[in-house]
């Protein structure tokens, strides 16, 4: 995994950073492609329970006689056309991909949002209060970052056991430190700006200063990291599921679908593994294209 770059300063406060972001975003074709790709995958995934031909988690609706059918075949018992074929459990691959994408995205969004929240709070507090609190928090962050994410997640999951919630907890643990470090870096600069000094002079409460004044102005770099981290979270979850410590087998994510389907590749039943693989790859590429551009836009040194 790469280390998201720390962005050290942000746009001046007068112009809304989000507006500027939108304007610049529209100029880059590659980023637009990424965004389109992402929407194309995310929207059907979110709507999966309503639009998927089959609910792959409802084992009562599966008939083993329909297993491992090639793409385009029609189920004898269910009457469904399996556009992407079926897997060994007679799950419609298209439905499984949609639901799997949903699981993958859910894990990624929840874990990244929570990491962002925790990381930003820690980072801002460290920067605002400084002193021993800063030293302590940053030491913890350092230690956390010196551990390879995969190892921490692996150990945590083997201890916590399987489950969607546990995967999310493990991913939060490995991701929050990035946000904390970035938030602190940005906040250290913002802290000395006039509007914060003014707020301090008005002797507003520290909670109010941190969350109402400091946070909004530190947000852009955090959003950049969050976007790229989404892709990491999806890939990391897939890897953990591949290693057998991820989501439960009865509710497969994309990573688990790929892992389970791989042994069918040699027998020519390529569709069981390849379609989830393509979906995963497209999702990650889409997020990265968007994130990459966001980084270019929001990094003032590159924007010049």
């Amino acid at each position: 995994m790469n280390t998201p770059m720390t962005v050290s300063s942000t746009a001046p406060a007068e112009e809304s950073p989000f507006r500027r972001l939108l304007m610049q975003f529209a100029e880059n074709r590659l980023a637009l492609v990424g965004l389109a790709l992402l929407l194309l995958l995310a929207v059907p995934a979110i709507l999966a329970p309503w639009i998927a031909p089959q609910n792959p988690y409802d084992i009562g609706s599966l008939d083993i006689l329909d297993s491992q059918m090639p793409p385009g075949s029609m189920g004898e018992m269910t009457g469904i056309t399996y556009w992407l074929g079926t897997d060994s459990q007679a799950r419609d691959v298209l439905s499984a991909v949609l639901f799997g994408m949903r699981t993958s995205l859910l894990v990624a969004f929840v874990s990244v949002s929570a990491s962002l929240l925790i990381g930003a709070t820690v980072g801002l507090c460290a920067a605002y209060f400084g002193g021993w609190l800063d030293a302590l928090l940053m030491r913890i962050v350092d230690i956390q970052l010196s551990f390879p994410a995969i190892l921490v997640a692996l150990i945590m999951l083997s201890i916590l056991g399987q489950g969607l919630d546990k995967v999310i907890v493990a991913l939060i643990v490995v991701q929050w430190a990035y946000f904390a470090r970035t938030a602190r870096g940005t906040a250290l600069v913002e802290r000395n700006r006039e509007y914060i000094l003014a707020a301090r002079c008005l002797s507003l409460g520290w909670r109010r200063i941190i969350f109402r004044h400091l946070l909004p102005n530190c947000l852009p770099p955090l959003i950049v990291i969050a976007t790229i981290d989404l892709a990491h979270a999806i890939a990391l979850e897939a890897t953990l599921s591949f290693l057998g410590v991820g989501v439960p087998v009865t509710q497969p994510s994309l990573g688990m679908l790929i892992a389970n389907g791989f042994e069918f590749m040699l027998s020519g039943h390529y569709w069981i593994s390849v379609f989830p693989g393509i979906a995963l790859a497209l999702a990650i590429i889409g997020i990265n294209l968007v994130g990459d551009h966001l980084r270019d836009v929001l990094n003032p040194r590159n924007a010049q």
Binding site: I59, G60, D63
Partner: peptide, 20 residues
Amino acid sequence: QTIAAMWTRAGVKAEVAAAA
């Protein structure tokens, strides 16, 4: 999972708990 599906079709709603 297949057995659970078969039980479910006979009316016993089965869920699979798979563990390492």
